[in-house]
Design a protein around this nucleic acid. Structure first.
Lengths: 343, 343
DNA sequence: TTGAAAGCGATACCAG
DNA sequence: CTGGTATCGCTTTCAA
């Protein structure tokens, strides 16, 4: 640890008052100018601009927020950061999509990370306390405290995904059942007979629905013994599940993994077991994340429009803030199948 | 898109005033109670609590921030989100570390993403406008507008990494030169003679320093022809660079990649070229990210204490806010070498 | 076109 | 222990 120089004198922030005195006008005039209400003489405008530069004035966001009763900021609430920011490749894209949409509307996205009980409580306070005008919530689970808070606060909100207790709040998502059904069918169409699934996150709708779609696609051929259940969508879970599956059913010739990361793990396990993909076993994933193309062979998968989800959620919140969208809506985005070499 | 139900009536928020009237006490008493200054009779306390519940009172963060002249929130500013949130595995861990430290101090972390000019301008406004009490900045480049803003605002700040124009602001980081030197030496010690490097992000200190350390370790044996330069720390860059390197110098028997993602890409290219790792070519990476263990063979690498960086940065900011740490400091964290099977 | 004044919703000091 | 009052920094009628 190295010390470098001494700290500078802490100068006090300039206020409208200072600018007013300096420019010889009233604070009202300054405010009007800054907020573009027109009706400011060229003369006054000039003097104010000079004064602002001279005293180094920057309006106080806080004071402005208080009087306007709005912040022009929208929260982006993320849960379980460990599982998400570090493992889920979608979260970053969703965040980017949301930021883009908000930026276009000149709103500030403030991302709030909930990593503990304590965080949940504090984030709740900020949310209800008017720190933001609305928020996007990703990966809420059932009975999520955040869900309760935004409902109680009647805050404009859009969820990404739909926990069962959303009631009358808006959400955006994809049709997990249909997507899983489709890709499973495609896999079956390659002539596989013993198709397994690596299912994950069954306590969330995404996980449960993908399993449901898989089951639906198999119909009579569904064999519960060919479903490996794991906790997370992670690579290591995929390795473990596939190893177990090979053990249980050595004749397996097809696998639908509930995420690309899981599929990549499965690939690794298959490789270790000496199986060739796609010759011996066909593998398909879900997400079309970076995993899909970095695997060997590249994964056939379902494209999850992550950025689009973020954008749509943000737009929904903005519409609610603007008072346009009155009724809660459920927005489903398309999920094209991307067919590559793994099946 | 499905419409669900009608929206509820927008009730107005209760204020201290309402609670005061309801409980028959003055607003001062309520404030004292809420802010734990003691000195509130059991009787008053009870009536206030009841009143709060009854009118559904939640203090306004905004109003409180204004009068207190502090928000108890710290910004976490991220640049170039595409490169970072989607590619850099460290950013998530840094964010988590920072959040953890802030949470312990009961401060709210608000993550602000700068994805465009417009974002930079807006984030600058929020930062200077007192939206947060201080901030952590990751991945600032030279002449970064954010750097200028925090300097001008004299905002308590800690950078993760150190762009050259930091002047007297605090930062936390690692010794990239020494780390690169060490792992290169270890690689050489395995008996390699033609050791190449895949260098990236040479416009940032991390990238340039890793190259410098590599060069230093090689001394006389340094051969500029064995350095492949790429833009990003990404997997695909690694594949490309390694392919090129094999082309240029087929006798290469060792590679130091400036990140694990690059190393993973290199592994892929080597595999394709029919080289065995570590028998024919030894490969080492940097970061000790998830890449390192998910590769085959797992990577020998340098552990970058990402969470620790986030925590340290956050602590530094907190100390500055508390007025403890007056002088700017440079904090370097340790980077142990993690030796696995790839070299 | 501009100034004066009334809030926005809390906190904090000061008598009592 | 508690109530009154000034204040935080800005926006926004309302007259002039």
């Amino acid at each position: 640890m190295t010390l470098v120089t001494a700290s500078p004198l802490p100068r006090k922030r300039a206020t409208v008052h200072d600018v007013a005195r300096e420019a010889g006008v009233s604070r009202g005039t300054i405010s009007r100018m800054l907020n573009g209400d027109g009706y400011v003489s060229a003369d006054a405008r000039e003097r104010i601009e000079a004064a602002i530069r001279k005293v180094g004035y920057v309006p106080s966001t806080t004071a402005r927020n208080l009087v306007r009763q709005r912040t022009n900021a929208v929260g982006f609430v993320v849960h379980e950061p460990h599982a998400l920011f570090l493992e889920d490749p979608n979260i970053g894209a969703i965040l980017l999509g949301a930021n883009e949409a908000l930026s276009e509307a000149d709103h500030q996205m403030v991302c709030l990370v909930v990593g503990s009980e304590r965080d949940a409580e504090r984030v709740g306070r900020y949310l209800r306390g008017g720190f933001v005008d609305g928020c996007v919530v990703v990966s809420a689970r059932e009975h999520d405290p955040i869900t309760a808070v935004v409902r109680a606060a009647q805050l404009p909100v859009a969820f990404v995904g739909h926990p069962p207790d959303l009631q009358d709040m808006s959400w955006v998502g994809i049709d997990n059942v249909a997507s899983a059904h489709e890709i499973t069918s495609r896999l079956l169409a390659t002539g596989r007979h013993r198709v397994a699934m690596i299912a994950a996150a069954l306590d969330r709708d995404s996980g449960a629905d993908r399993l449901a779609g898989f089951r639906q696609a198999l119909g009579d051929r569904f064999d519960a013994g060919l479903v490996a259940r794991v906790e997370h969508y992670a690579y290591s879970d995929g390795v473990r599940a596939m190893t177990e599956l090979l053990d249980r059913a050595p004749d397996v010739d097809g696998v639908f993994a509930a995420s690309d990361a899981l599929a990549a793990g499965a690939l690794e396990a298959l490789l270790r077991a000496g199986r060739r993909v796609p010759q011996d076993v066909g593998v398909v994933g879900f997400d079309d994340s970076a995993w899909a193309t970095r695997c060997t062979p590249p994964l056939s998968t379902v494209r999850q429009p992550a950025e689009g989800l973020g954008r749509a959620a943000a737009r929904s919140v903005l519409a609610q803030i603007a008072g346009e969208q009155r009724a809660p809506a459920a927005i489903l985005l398309d999920t094209p199948v991307v067919w590559r070499a793994s099946a």
